[in-house]
């Protein structure tokens, strides 16, 4: 009895129960996980069973999130990641450039099927970096979410479910909107359901498309997130999140700046107190490694001569 024989049986079993893998890849905060939750509620209305394995790469900010959903006609579903995705929803085009192992593996898990991208590009313009053959669909879910919702940034996850319903036909738009409004009764649910409907109407679908590995034209900004969350391990995050115009990403509003001319201590205590150990004296100069400085201000507090000032981080140029 060979292992191939068992693999065949596993594939047969999956076919017999209508097993399908749906992968939703998003950035934390966009609503990818919520969209997956609503999708599973909508599918459940239609008599399907689903289970989701959520994987996150664990960065403190803007972590990519992979929701590995499995759907079938019966509840026996594995808890593993997705390796043979039939339907993929990518909530952010920049994820194609992300260099984290798990994100690469997730994006590569679809080779055939339906690829959906929440982006302004037309389907044939999607910069999918690996081999793929099948249907591609896009809609600018972020822009539609901004029409439908008052908060900024407008989370586009639920809006993108309209893209899913339009591209796959695997779940009814009514089930989606019903699930949204059950989860969020009142105005919030109405606005999000409205967003999903607009996305459904404006989705562009193209069948019979194929992409080849290595041919995608990835722009520099596709790799921005790669810088935040990819290899090599230590990449510089944006110095001051607030300067990107996004208040939700604000951190390190102030950073320490030192006027060495005022330093008179024989032994500087700030390197000892820094919780991130980013302060050094090199060749007689005071150096702060801004790549890891979190702007806590302890150095400014403990400096005996008040030589260190905490200034607006947008004014600091290391």
């Amino acid at each position: 009895m060979s292992t191939e024989h068992v693999s065949e049986q596993l594939s047969d079993l999956k076919r017999a129960v209508g097993y399908k893998e749906i992968t939703v890849v998003s950035i934390a905060g966009q609503g990818g996980a919520l969209a997956t939750e609503i999708l599973s509620a909508a599918l459940s209305k239609e008599g399907k069973f689903s289970s989701v394995n959520m994987r996150t790469t664990g960065e403190r900010r803007m972590s990519p999130v992979i929701n590995c959903m499995k759907v079938a006609d019966q509840p026996m579903l594995p808890n593993s990641a997705n390796y043979d995705t039939a339907e993929m929803l990518v909530m952010e085009g920049k994820l194609f450039g992300n260099q984290h192992d798990w994100i690469i593996q997730a994006i590569q898990s679809i080779r055939r099927g339906v690829l959906m991208v929440a982006a302004p590009e037309w389907p044939h313009e999607v910069p999918f970096p690996y081999d793929f053959e099948g249907t591609v669909a896009t809609v600018d879910a972020t822009a539609i979410a901004e029409e439908a919702l008052p908060m900024r940034p407008a989370p586009s996850g639920l809006t993108a479910l309209g893209l899913y319903a339009a591209a796959t036909g695997a779940v009814g738009l009514d089930s989606i909107c019903g699930a949204i409004q059950e989860r969020f009764p009142g105005k919030l649910g109405e606005m999000n359901a409205n967003g999903a409907r607009m996305a459904y109407e404006r989705t562009r679908v193209q069948t019979g498309l194929s992409f080849q590995a290595g041919k995608a034209k990835l722009r520099m900004d596709h790799f921005e997130l790669g810088k935040v969350s990819g290899k090599p391990k230590f990449q510089r995050p944006p110095l001051a999140g607030a300067s990107e115009g996004n208040p939700f990403l604000a951190w390190r509003p102030r950073l320490p700046v030192t006027d060495e001319a005022n330093c008179t201590c024989k032994f500087c205590i700030t390197p000892t107190f820094c919780p991130e150990a980013v302060i050094f004296w090199r060749n007689g100069h005071y150096v702060v490694d801004y790549e890891f400085c979190k702007g806590c201000g302890i150095c400014a507090e403990v400096c005996v001569h008040q030589t260190i000032q905490m200034v607006d981080s947008t004014q600091v140029h290391p």
Partner: peptide, 12 residues
Amino acid sequence: FDGWEVSHSSFT
């Protein structure tokens, strides 16, 4: 229960 895989994963 498994962190993320069960704690954050939707199920009916």
